[in-house]
Design a protein around this nucleic acid. Structure first.
Lengths: 338, 338
DNA sequence: GGTGCGACTGGGACCGGTCACAGTCTGCGC
DNA sequence: GCGCAGACTGTGACCGGTCCCAGTCGCACC
């Protein structure tokens, strides 16, 4: 007996109810926790679900409950910086896994071009997702304003500059992390330490520099600071400029591993060895760091925990719980470069 | 005046109908192409949609039409290889953009652990997405079997080994690409060319090796072939072994940029210069290739076109059109390494 | 024996769309 | 004057769930 003729209609809750000899209401109760259901009815329903191969229809449930059952993973980097970053993948994967455990799904939204941004704002405001995991970093993003206006539950990855307190966030202790790394370089005996900071309109750009300056105290020299945009090329450029200003630099702390790798290129071009002549430290502990020649000393960001906590916080906000933010610790990873 | 008391109900198609002074049916017709609608009615409806800020409810539409309005981006790599690969991001982004143009969404599914694989199979078979963009490469994946059994429209990225002809695929000309690169190395005067191939149960592992062998013809030497798993470390290991067997190698063709970078590490450890002593060629033209020291000669894969074509093909299959596969060309990118 | 209560069950209304079908209205040919 | 085709419109049924309310049942208690 084949029943492959025409794909038979998928079983509905009515089929299950009929098979179990109970009403739709009872089946629904069993599916949703099973309170106020007699043991007999429950086992009958469970058996019927098994037999029929029933699976709830997302769309129907979503229509009835008013919940979408999905969260958006929203990328707003105009440049593809984050996309090139291996860390991004970890974040995405972690979020997908955290959601699948809760039988929810992750919808990927890309808001690069102005047109895409408008579409995304519309889509999200229309309630097609229950909330937004915001993967952005730049200050004053109008898209964030429109999300907040529309009252869309949102949690930010990293401190949302200009909107602190307006939305939940999961961040690492940027300032403290930078102090730890700076202290490490000082402890190793370095005295002329330069920094390649990130853009000032990103939390990592701003606060890692603050930590660096604080830890150096009196020893801080403004001329030993350059800014990059987290890319490798910008690291090379920044290092080149630093060397033009001061050839005595004996260590450099870059706000990303990519920029650290770029700095190494510039140092080598200048005939300097890493770490013998100049120590180089990065940030992120991306895959790149361990594979680099020499392996990079860096600050590890707990990407898996970040994504998991973002999902937790966002679901709390959706439930109506008071907004909460979390700061996670980083970890100094000492390798050969510093 | 705050209206934050209770978020007002989102307008429905009934509200629009009332505002425009027409029936729900007419509004629906306008939304879906506007055939058999008088010009007056159409403009009235369009105006009403604008005024009310109406957006269609995905869940309701999906329930009524039986279409989910979303596609799955399914990752099945047990290891996180693809995740570490910058190309993966391009593919993902391309797919998301192609879909957003069609007002559909991309749902990310990760099928790493056995439990996840079971969940994913269940989820997809239950019809929660209209089709699957399969990002996998290994032969004999039971998950693929269950997708095919369930009749889920699927398109594969790369030739689906063991299932060719069973589902649509978008692939590059692996064999031809490998021949082009091999010819390039020969034309540069190299005579003892080694290859670091990918795993034999992946299309890139198998057919790039075939192309390499074909192009070398008589000159092919089996002892100059090693296999890696596309990772950097495996490239280093493979190159090390090749050098142990034969110190006269004057060029090496790796089946991925990552492995090429790994090979460079091994070559340097052996005291050999790239490209002076040994030319190194990669595959993919990932971001890594251009940034590498020296910049890598490689074969560029058209990732943006691959994702766009995958979406096109999958939508065709969903529409019931006959299954179709596409082979896209690659491009030789000559840089410093070979 | 009636009352009250808690556990459990059934079924109608509803979520917000689409779709098929039954109109209506207009103009044209005979 | 009538029939009829074609353009357009309105309406009820339906998609597959959830929710809530009205019941039923059994049992303890007065």
């Amino acid at each position: 007996m084949e029943d492959t003729t025409i794909a038979r209609r998928r079983p509905t809750i009515r089929d299950v109810a009929a098979a179990a000899g109970v009403s739709r209401g009872t089946v629904s109760r069993v599916i949703n926790g099973g309170h106020w259901v007699s043991p007999d009815a429950r086992t009958a329903v469970e058996e019927a679900i098994r037999r029929t191969g029933y699976t709830a229809n997302h769309a129907a449930r979503s229509l009835a409950t008013g919940r979408a059952g999905s969260l958006a993973f929203l990328l707003t980097e105009p440049q593809h910086l984050l996309f090139a970053d291996p860390n991004f993948s970890l974040l995405l994967r972690g979020a997908a896994e955290a959601l699948s455990q809760r039988s929810m799904t992750l919808v990927l939204l890309v808001a690069g071009t102005p047109e895409e941004r408008a579409n995304v704002a519309h889509f999200v405001s229309a309630g097609h997702v229950d909330g937004v995991l915001l993967i952005s970093s730049h200050e004053a993003d109008p898209l964030l304003d429109s999300l907040l206006d529309a009252g869309v539950p949102t949690v930010s990855c990293g401190l949302p500059l200009g909107h602190q307190g307006d939305l939940a966030a999961v961040a690492v202790d940027e300032e403290g992390s930078a102090r730890v790394m700076t202290r490490h370089l000082l402890d190793r005996g370095h005295r002329r330490i330069a920094m390649i900071a990130g853009p000032d309109d990103t939390p990592g750009g701003r606060y890692r520099l603050v930590g660096f300056r604080e830890e150096l105290g009196e020893a801080f020299e403004p001329e030993l600071v350059e800014h990059g945009d987290y890319s490798r090329e910008s690291g090379t450029l920044a290092m080149t400029r630093l060397l033009e200003r001061n050839r005595d630099i004996d260590a450099v702390f870059a706000a990303s591993d990519m920029m650290a790798a770029g700095a190494v290129v510039a140092l080598r071009r200048a005939g300097l060895r890493v770490p013998e002549d100049v120590a180089v430290a990065g940030f992120d502990d991306s895959g790149l760091a361990a594979a680099h020649e020499p392996p990079l000393t860096t600050m590890r960001q707990p990407w898996d925990r970040i994504s998991a906590e973002m999902v937790t916080l966002l679901l709390e906000v959706i439930e109506g719980a008071p907004r909460r933010s979390i700061t996670l610790p980083t970890e100094l990873v000492v390798r050969d470069s510093a």
